[in-house]
Amino acid sequence: MSRRHPGTRMPKLAIGSASALVYVFFYVPVAVLVLFSFNQARTGGRWAGFTTDWYSALADNDRLLTATWNSLFIAIISTAIAVVLGTMLSLALDRRVFRGRTAAQQVVYLPVIAPEIVTGVALLAFFSLTLGRLNDMLGRSAQDAIRMGRPTIIIAHVAFCTAFVALVVRASLRTLDPSLEEAAQDLGANGWTTFWRVTLPAIMPGVLGGALLAFTLSLDNFVITFFVSGPGATTLPIEVFGQLRRTISPEVNAISTLIFGASTLLLTGALGIQSAVSRRRSRPDGDSGPDGAAVARPDAGLRNPDAGASHKSYPSNPQLIGGGKP
């Protein structure tokens, strides 16, 4: 049934090679930095022989390790909060009609359009004002004042990450037929159950995609982070940008290589688990059971599990998209 792919007759070969090109584009710079992390030369540009010295030096480099940890900590917390808030926001904006909706929408997308450096400066002014007041109120002295640091960075990151998550999730919601949720409720599910069992699974690609983007944005943010950070809250981009004044130390290449390797390993592991699970669950125990049918369709997960009703200007009828076969 699905003889062809959505690109119609755009030759498969062209699509494949264009895709390969994108991956090459992404990975060549990564390959360079991995290579440099094993290069004896301090300044890049020439190969001076293989070494693992930078990795052992890294173990003693508290500054770089602390900065890396700060970055990961901030990115993980910010992403977690932003995914919840962003999904809620997009639900409110898409599934509810209320007065001031347009205004709310504009507010949500402010972070997306505001130039970072302005946001950074404005946030610095804002935090200095509010923290100053807070310290006065609590009677804190200069010694134990509440200061900027990881919490203020997280506040700033959550704000822009939430907007990006809302944007991406909203796009998923747009293609989800509300009649599905209504159907679930007709069948007796309450709002919460409907959300967990129908809405969330359907928009999961959007939620995960939003989470990935938010994590990336937070991890790489430099401009805003600089302005709202405080003592001891230096993140990896700030540390690396500082090193540009001389030359980037090969230890930075080493830590980048480690981050790259670790994320590859962890995500490959997760994929392995996923594949094992889906293989086990798709074992032929019949597709009549409550679980069988969908699980037997291995790609059901990322698809819209709806009943194929037309919605908006474009219908989505996923069981025709090459699904439905064991």
Partner: peptide
């Protein structure tokens, strides 16, 4: 995931590689 992984290494370092 292969699209995202490169972006978890510092952008500055990758730009330097470019």
């Amino acid at each position: 995931i292969a699209v995202m992984i490169p972006f978890w290494t510092s952008m500055l370092v990758r730009t330097y590689a470019i």
